[in-house]
Amino acid sequence: MQYSSIPPGYLTTALAAKACGVEPATIRDWVRRGLLHRAAGTPRHPLYVVDAVTAAKLAAKPTRPGQRASR
């Protein structure tokens, strides 16, 4: 499903990833970890609030045992 128009103040997963300079899988990982929450859309095509995406980008990311060091 492609949105014909996105409501102001919202981003799709792809647009949120592009805005943060990360891959879409990273946005989905932030959702899974609880750093970012879906605000609208459907479970398959979520929308995120711009301010929440920015806050998630700046949030300290939890580390896991055995996690590779960032470059």
Rank of each mutant, 00 (worst) to 15 (best):
A14W: 10
T13G: 02
A56Q: 06
A60V: 13
T12K: 02
P8M: 05
Q67L: 00
S70N: 06
P43G: 10
A55T: 05
L15I: 12
A56R: 11
G9S: 13
G41C: 13
R32H: 13
A60D: 06
A39V: 15
Y3I: 04
L15Y: 13
T42M: 15
A39I: 14
A55M: 14
L36Q: 01
R28K: 10
A55Q: 03
G66W: 01
P46L: 03
C20L: 13
P65N: 01
A60K: 10
G41V: 15
S70G: 02
A39G: 02
H37C: 11
A19Y: 12
L58A: 14
G66R: 00
Y3E: 00
G21H: 09
K18D: 08
T26Y: 02
P7W: 12
Q67A: 00
V22Y: 08
V22D: 01
V22L: 06
Y48L: 02
K18L: 08
P65H: 01
R44L: 11
T54E: 03
P24A: 12
H45T: 15
A16K: 11
P43E: 04
M1F: 04
S70Q: 08
A52F: 11
L11G: 00
D29L: 15
Q2V: 09
G9R: 11
P62S: 09
A19M: 11
T13Q: 10
I6N: 01
A56S: 03
S70R: 05
R71W: 07
P62K: 02
G9L: 10
V22R: 07
K61A: 10
A14V: 10
V53T: 06
I6W: 12
I27W: 02
V22M: 06
Y10I: 06
P46K: 07
A19T: 07
R44Y: 10
V53A: 09
G34L: 07
P8Q: 08
A16H: 11
V22E: 01
A16T: 07
G41M: 08
S4H: 08
A69H: 04
W30E: 00
L35R: 14
A55L: 15
L36P: 01
R44K: 15
G21E: 07
K57L: 06
L11T: 02
P8A: 15
A16I: 09
R38T: 10
L58K: 12
R68M: 05
G9W: 13
Y48T: 00
T26H: 06
K61Q: 15
R28I: 03
W30D: 00
P43C: 08
A25C: 04
S4Q: 12
A55I: 12
K57I: 08
A40V: 05
G21M: 13
T13S: 03
L15N: 06
